[in-house]
């Protein structure tokens, strides 16, 4: 049991940190523009696909650098020529625009790369088991993912709190008028920040593509989950998003490792149902069976009990 728990924790951390790379971008963009970017996970997908295509010509490592850049540029263009236009029509239109964009990007990816899963591999340099514990390998690539995402978190945090650009950005979020009066081009700051956010998503795509699969559904499967994290963490809070991402990563992982089910709960309560009960499937549910759905349950509970999220404040 201990070995399963250890692996579950390690995997939960990897997933959680990956989710955070996406959630950080969504949070950043929400703080700036007040819009939840539904298409954020689509940039994650684009990052993976760009890296796949680039790595076929240039090798993996240049692709690791170029694909996020390309994604970021694309993101900045979307902000400049799409979102800024829609901004005038109100918050609902913005949200719906990003929703449509996510749909569109998925269709375009299918058009250019086809519908099948792409053969995007872990580079040979890191394609070995780092250690073996209780008969299960822990691939070196996962350790790399872990380190890289931790590095990104540290870099982002330092960048936002310790550098001049971070200062201007944070000021532009809270006091756009003042920052503009001081001579900064606020729309351009926002565009750049949007680019950085999408580039981060692209980077997440590059490192996740080889292990989680590079296929047209990869954005949809992650998109709503990232939303859930941002909302649970408290809209606009980077620390909240970090905590929520880890929480959800670990929660899912542990839930799968467990083997508790409704049957145990019913036995504890001393209740039993006939096997042909109309809701029989409900009484047979187990925790691992619904583990991937737990974040949504958590979301609904959170919004009911503490609508501002883990780290949100009541101002907005």
């Amino acid at each position: 049991m201990a070995d399963a728990l250890l692996f579950a924790t390690l995997n939960g951390l990897v997933t959680g940190l990956l989710l955070f790379m996406l959630a950080s971008g969504v949070t950043l963009i929400f703080s700036m523009m007040g819009v939840l970017n539904f298409a954020h996970a689509s940039f994650y997908m684009l990052g993976a696909y760009f890296a796949f295509s680039l790595s076929q010509h240039l090798g993996f490592w240049p692709a690791l650098l170029l694909a996020p850049l390309l994604t970021g540029v694309l993101g900045a263009l979307v902000e400049r020529y799409g979102l800024r236009q829609v901004h005038r029509h109100g918050a609902v239109a913005e949200l719906v625009f990003t929703f449509g964009l996510a749909f569109l990007i998925e269709e375009l990816v299918q058009l250019f790369w086809g519908r099948a899963t792409q053969d995007f591999r872990v580079p040979a340099l890191l394609d070995f088991p780092l250690f073996t514990l209780f008969g299960q390998d822990f691939p070196a690539w996962r350790a790399f993912m872990l380190l890289l995402s931790l590095g990104i978190f540290a870099g982002l945090y330092a960048g936002l709190t310790r550098t001049r650009y971070g200062l201007i950005l944070r000021a532009a979020i809270t006091h756009p008028q003042t920052v503009a009066n001081l001579g900064h081009n606020v729309p351009r700051i926002f565009m750049l920040a949007f680019g950085v956010g999408t580039a981060l998503a692209g980077l997440a795509g590059v490192i996740a593509g080889p292990v989680l699969g590079t296929w047209p559904g990869m954005a949809a499967s992650l998109g709503s989950l990232v939303f859930v994290i941002v909302v649970i963490g408290g809209l606009g809070s980077l620390t909240g998003a970090f905590v929520a991402a880890l929480l959800i990563g670990l929660l899912q992982s542990w839930a799968i490792a467990s083997s508790v089910g409704m049957a145990d709960v019913l036995a504890l309560l001393g209740v039993s149902f006939p096997p042909d009960h109309p809701l029989r499937d409900l009484w047979r549910l187990t925790l691992p069976q619904v583990a991937p759905l737990l974040p949504y349950v958590l979301l609904v509970l959170m919004l009911l009990l503490r609508p501002a999220g883990l780290a949100g404040n009541r101002e907005d």
Binding site: M1, D3, A4, F7, A8, N11, G12, V14, T15, F134, G135, Q136, V211, L212, S221, L222, L225, Q252, S253, I256, A257, P288, A291, P292, L293
Partner: peptide
């Protein structure tokens, strides 16, 4: 809905 199958793999090993 499953993004990462590793937790399931751990269970198989166990």
């Amino acid at each position: 809905q499953v993004k990462d199958f590793t937790p399931y793999i751990s269970k198989i090993v166990a």
